[in-house]
């Protein structure tokens, strides 16, 4: 029994690593369709990763060891985060090591390392990207925490698997605060994953870029790992969203068997397809904000999350 749990945990992580680039590719494809462009293949991210891994790494002369280790740390933290988030099943032994707050801490660790690495070379773009990333980060983090707090108050736990279990115990009752939390969460997701109202993942050498500015000095396998980590981050955020707001199909504690697992994989894929096209739609419909509108956007996300908390206190299902 114990062994099966660990295997399942391991399998979930491998699945996350494997399909995260696919999710990013799907979003890119949807965006292209919606904007009447000819779409790249869904598997484009895999091709890019393969190409990057086979190239020689070009490392700036001034790069310190911190710069070289950061891609591995980024990838490591994101894989670890994937191990905590119940995307397929709530029966995760590793999830006991880190609850939702620790998960936010893990994302923060990745962000700090990436920013430090960006400052390491000492170019103008790198440090500008670093400070903007940290700015987005310190506004998004409290908002995300409030969203998770809201869920914790509903189900009396900060551990993500317990949240899903708690939700599945009363599936018919939707707490009114969830609407606020969901809106706030989507806003945080867009900001944290360098999506369009805040940052454009497809841009290069613009004065407005944030995420790409930090990666300018990375190449080959280092760049591949950083990119993979950002795919994983997007995937993780999507899975947090599923766990908090639409946890249907996740195998809850105590349900075993191949059928349940297959069902949960199908459910996850279905949700990813829908979420990916929804994200692409949002990105297509909205325009990129000026950099100093970004705090406004995130302040709004934060206030909505807090409002959700208040609404829960007033109207919450008891």
């Amino acid at each position: 029994m114990r062994g099966i749990t660990f295997i399942r945990q391991f399998g979930e992580v491998i699945l996350a690593i494997a399909i995260a680039p696919l999710f990013a590719g799907w979003i890119a494809q949807c965006r292209a369709w919606m904007q009447s462009r000819s779409a790249p293949l869904v598997t484009q991210p895999y091709r890019m990763l393969r190409k990057l891994f086979s190239k020689d790494a070009a490392l700036a002369e001034t790069a310190s060891p911190l710069f070289r280790i950061t891609p591995y740390v980024l990838f490591g933290t994101m894989v670890l985060a994937a191990a905590i988030i119940p995307s397929l099943a709530t029966d995760l032994p590793f999830a006991r090591a880190a609850d939702a707050i620790a998960l936010i801490g893990l994302f923060a660790t990745a962000r700090v390392f990436l920013s430090l690495a960006a400052m390491d070379i000492g170019t103008g773009f790198g440090s500008m990207g670093a400070r903007r990333e940290m700015m987005i980060g310190f506004l998004a983090e409290p908002a995300l925490l409030m969203v998770l707090f809201n869920a914790s108050l509903l189900y009396g736990s900060t551990a993500l698997p317990s949240l899903v279990d708690g939700y599945r115990a009363h599936p018919t009752i939707i707490d009114p605060s969830v609407i606020f939390a969901a809106v706030a969460f989507v806003m945080v997701l867009l900001a944290e994953n360098a999506r369009i109202p805040i940052d454009n993942p497809a841009t290069h050498l613009e004065l407005t870029m944030i995420h790409e500015a930090m990666l300018l000095e990375y190449s080959a396998r280092h760049l591949a790992l950083v990119e993979w980590a950002s795919y994983l981050k997007l995937f993780n955020y999507a899975c947090i969203g599923f766990a908090l707001f639409v946890p249907w199909g996740i195998a809850i504690h105590g349900s075993d068997g191949g059928g349940v697992l297959a069902l949960s994989i199908v459910a996850l894929l279905g949700k990813l397809v829908v979420a990916g096209s929804a994200l692409a739609l949002i990105e297509t419909l909205s325009a990129k904000l000026r950099i100093f509108r970004a705090p406004e956007f995130l302040a709004m996300a934060f206030l909505l999350a807090v409002l959700g908390l208040l609404v829960h206190l007033l109207l919450g299902v008891r």
Partner: peptide, 29 residues
């Protein structure tokens, strides 16, 4: 409960501050 939000904001700002401290003193050229 808003206090938790302020605390989170402070913690995240502290990360900002420390990236500035470390990045400017030890990193770069």
């Amino acid at each position: 409960p808003l206090g938790a939000a302020v605390l989170a904001l402070t913690a995240a700002l502290a990360a900002y501050v420390m990236v500035k401290f470390y990045g400017v003193v030890f990193l770069g050229q």
